[in-house]
Amino acid sequence: MTRFAKLSIVIPAYNEARTIHLILDRVRKVDLSGGINKEVIVVNDCSTDDTEGAIQRYREQHRGFDIQYYAHPVNRGKGAALHTGIARATGEYLIIQDADLEYDPREYNELLQPVLDGFADVVYGSRFQGSKPHRILFFWHTIGNRFLTTLSNAFNNLNLTDMETCYKLFRTDMVQSLSLQEQRFGFEPEVTAKISRIPNVRIYEVGISYYGRTYEEGKKIGWRDGVRAIWCIVKYGV
């Protein structure tokens, strides 16, 4: 079994004042397999609401729960927030956690299992595999996600079912070795293309649950991001 000491959890946040304390609670309460410690890194991408205040109040209320906090002085996009968090991660492995409530931190151990079993360097959590609960929402989003995943697979010679998933777990040294450029949601196809080209990288996928949000509830990705994703797949996949 693969042993390691620390998992870095990178949380990009933009205008999540209403829910950031809830996701931090879930991350704080989850116990990782094998006694692995958690390093939590929150990057506030110049939110215009009280996200910063909510994070600082949470840190005051839970002083024993170490949260590294970084704030961008201008809004740069989710990808840029992830770049900041990835660069500061010190755990042997790293997982991305959105600041909303669409993904369940209790499933970290399922993503970790292929690593602990000695099989994987990278694990994607697929919303389209397995029998876990999935909120029923947008038909065209599902079609778009499947199209982007198929296109990405064709360019990168992979057989993923969910390239656009938030839950991506990486060996930290691998993802830190990449020269990542995309500032917004183009992060997903770019990191997939570049990680797939690391010699002998072992990529696995596990099924996860998905508690999606509507736009009224705070969902941010739109059709323009889908168009950008297609451009990124072609740019980084050739």
Results as ranks from 00 to 15, higher is better:
233 I>M: 12
190 E>W: 10
66 D>Y: 12
54 A>Q: 11
95 I>D: 01
45 D>R: 07
56 Q>E: 14
79 G>V: 02
62 H>D: 00
154 A>H: 13
118 G>A: 10
137 L>M: 05
202 R>D: 00
225 D>R: 07
79 G>K: 14
65 F>W: 09
74 V>F: 15
112 L>H: 02
99 A>E: 08
50 D>N: 13
55 I>P: 02
151 L>C: 10
48 T>G: 15
139 F>Y: 15
209 S>K: 04
90 T>E: 15
98 D>K: 05
183 Q>A: 10
11 I>S: 08
188 E>P: 01
91 G>Y: 12
107 E>N: 02
229 A>R: 03
74 V>T: 13
119 F>H: 14
198 I>M: 11
174 M>T: 07
193 A>W: 04
128 F>K: 01
154 A>W: 14
8 S>F: 02
145 N>T: 12
19 T>Y: 12
164 E>K: 03
64 G>N: 15
168 K>P: 02
138 F>N: 14
100 D>L: 04
219 K>A: 15
43 V>S: 01
182 E>K: 04
128 F>M: 06
31 D>Q: 14
57 R>E: 15
199 P>Y: 06
128 F>H: 04
190 E>T: 04
16 E>L: 13
116 L>H: 09
117 D>M: 08
109 N>H: 03
103 Y>P: 01
234 V>A: 14
78 K>I: 09
220 K>Y: 00
171 R>S: 04
136 I>A: 11
5 A>T: 15
12 P>I: 01
210 Y>S: 09
165 T>F: 01
178 L>M: 06
117 D>R: 13
91 G>T: 10
220 K>G: 08
66 D>V: 09
166 C>M: 11
53 G>W: 05
157 N>M: 14
184 R>L: 04
128 F>P: 05
126 S>Y: 05
33 S>G: 07
156 N>W: 09
161 T>Q: 13
58 Y>P: 13
233 I>E: 08
89 A>L: 02
160 L>W: 06
1 M>D: 05
134 H>S: 07
221 I>T: 11
159 N>W: 10
